[in-house]
Amino acid sequence: MSCFQTIQDYGLRSIGIGERLLPKESITLCEQFTLIGSGMIWNIYYGVIALATGFFLATALAVAKGSNRRIFRKPAEWFIFLFRGSPLFIQFFFAYFLFLNLKGTHPFFGPFTAAWLGALVVLFLNTAAYSGEIFYGALRSIPKGDVEAADAYGMTGWSRFRRIIWPTMLRLAWPAYTNEAIFLFHATTLVYFSSFPAWRQKGDSLYYARYFADKTFNPFIPYPILAFYFILLTLLIIGFFGLINKRLNRHLPTERRAKTRGLPNLLR
């Protein structure tokens, strides 16, 4: 069987298109590359959607945590503490458990025990908490002069936030937020490794890498392939976030732009 044929058969296997049965005997390098790559679809799915949705909650959390009103501040503080203070492993376990129990009482929660939704919710909350903390840190270091200038122009409330505070916050937080994005994509490999089940052998890249490691008894091929894909993905993320970073800093003179790149890199 040619490698092209393999790609046709297994390229979309992780979302249920193609051959039903996974390769079992005389496994080729091409099959390993194709299936593990196919599993990356799920890693990208979880990462992109969780980041895109988590971003908004994170902004809200950062503002709430910086608020003077206890009623906003306390819940945000607790939420961030809970999700940043515990391993994702344990969060997945409790989420699965919780969704199962809710499913019994409310049929609405039916799809939540499947990984595509349940694990996504956990990753969404998790990244919101981490990014919320990063944004909160950035919010605190916005230069006082910027806000005073906005006041002087008569900007208040929403327009001041949207046009002055929010862009500055993003600009300051961006290097750390890039790191958070990388970590989130890495964390997506835990989905099928912890509590959520894989249906019909449709799993993420780590699921297929483990499948091959189990079938060939040789961990030195599938895991480096997985690593290769993730290095590519990480480079893509860094490139994409770098473009946005450029746009965020486009109003600054080039000299200062270079300096913001040197800001300490916050990690999650």
Partner: peptide, 13 residues
């Protein structure tokens, strides 16, 4: 390189 790889994949082999 090491930052680009999920720690779990690294630990596996």
């Amino acid at each position: 390189i090491v930052r680009g790889i999920p720690d779990i994949a690294f630990f596996m082999f």
